[in-house]
Nucleic acid binder design. Structure first.
Length: 363
RNA sequence: GGGUCGGUACUCAAGUGGUCAACGAGAGCAGACUGUAAAUCUGCUGGCAUCGCCUUCGGGGGUUCAAAUCCCUCCCGGCCCA
């Protein structure tokens, strides 16, 4: 399923084979929480050469619901996307919707953020829903503790996640690839115990979870590097939910293969665009530089008459056909097209970053 | 010509003696965003500035300890009557 093709230091170049195709690693997954990358279609994602999309169990369970998803034949068919899909288990919503949920050993009860209805999510239900969705890669249901939690809370969440990992392993659809998720907050002892526990159970891949949730960035880097040391070489490693471009370069440099993050899509909708400082085709990744891009806040007044493209090195549809002044105008006038053009560009930036890193590691 | 209502910061619009540099909205300016309850959220938007000080509510004059608020007058606009 996963083959490691090449290494450069700790950085890994590989390929991951799924039901819906082979994915070159390391890679980035655009996020389609509710079955759509916000503002973009499946066709747009194909044009962007996205290899895989990420969707969400909790959100799809609310709408269209498990029964409807089953009747509709799964998410690939539903959204017209024939390449791989990974689904998050709903674990992250344990953290992000913590004000409206209640955690027990069995699982988590949410008050739906839509209509307040009680939603029960357990490891078994999450596995069942992800089976109905038909994702190529599914995530274990986990308990994510906020980054500033106490040691006890981190430990509790980690141990519960480990018990839930076993329940997921016992109940998942064997046609899918199941990933375990390392928890343990910012504590090495907990991270180690979590990683070793998951490896004992045995998964198709291992994720590093519970980071980028409010802890200091140094801790996040340290935990990622530390955790990778306890994960098997022959399985893919997935940093969940992060991060900025320079974060991703760092995580790749310490041996992470898979990423997802809302930053490119959300920031795009908020007018914050990633721009290369040098040509990504020829960028030198020796020593893993961090200052290879800058942020253009396209809503800023100074772009009113700027007729250059968003990014002179970028080959995306936005940059090859529009100007900064035009995109700024679309934001100023609240035209939906602005959100689309910005999202296309930012995703192209992230996907190009991954491609550039893959090329570098291959050499 | 007479009567009447009104003229508040970039715009609209509250306020009708002190708690007013003046509610609110829009517009503008800037910032945040990390397994998406996010086309969202947070600041700032008279001047200088650390408290604080200075100049403002159509113009001018007045009453008062104190006026965007009361009085006089002028200018401008809406409506009504001649």
């Amino acid at each position: 399923m996963f083959s490691l093709l090449n290494k450069k230091g700790k950085a890994r170049r590989g390929s991951l084979t799924t039901e819906h195709g082979v994915i070159e690693t390391p890679f980035f997954m655009p996020i389609a929480t509710k079955g759509a990358v916000k503002t973009l279609s499946a066709l747009d994602m194909e044009e962007l050469n996205a290899q895989i999309l990420l969707s969400n169990t909790y959100h799809l369970m609310l709408r269209p619901s498990m029964n409807s998803m089953e009747r509709l034949g799964g998410l690939h068919k539903f959204m017209g996307w024939n390449k791989p899909i990974l689904t998050d288990s709903g674990g992250y919503q344990v953290f992000s919707l913590s004000k409206i949920n209640n955690i027990t050993e069995d699982g988590v009860t949410f008050n739906s953020h839509i209509d307040g209805a009680k939603i029960n999510l357990t490891p078994e239900i999450s596995m069942q829903m992800q089976s109905v969705i038909g994702s190529d890669i599914i995530m274990q249901f986990d308990d994510v503790a906020a980054g500033k939690s106490s040691f006890d809370r981190f430990q509790d969440a980690m141990e519960r996640s480990l018990r839930w990992a076993q329940r997921c392993k016992d109940s998942y659809n064997k046609n899918q690839k199941l990933f375990g998720i390392v928890q343990g907050g910012v504590h090495e002892s907990l991270r180690q115990k979590s990683a070793e526990g998951l490896v004992d159970i045995g998964f198709d891949g291992y994720a590093i979870g519970g980071l980028s949730v409010g802890e200091p960035k140094e801790d996040c880097y340290k935990m990622t590097n530390f955790t990778c040391g306890f994960l098997p070489e022959n399985k893919p490693r997935y940093f969940m939910g992060g991060g900025t471009p320079e974060d991703i370069v760092y995580y790749v440099s310490v041996g992470v293969d898979m990423f997802d993050c809302v930053i490119p899509t959300r920031n795009a909708r908020h007018g914050s665009l990633f721009v290369w400082k040098e040509d990504p085709e020829t960028i030198n990744w020796d020593n893993w530089p961090t200052n290879f891009y800058e942020n253009v806040k396209i809503k800023n007044e100074k772009y009113t008459y700027d007729e250059s493209p968003i990014d002179k090195y970028c080959t995306c549809k936005t940059c090859t056909t529009t100007t900064r002044s035009y995109v700024r105008h679309l934001f100023a006038t609240n035209e939906i097209l602005g959100l689309r053009l910005a999202t296309i560009h930012n995703l192209h930036f992230y996907l190009t970053l991954m491609k550039s890193l893959r090329n570098y590691i291959s050499k």
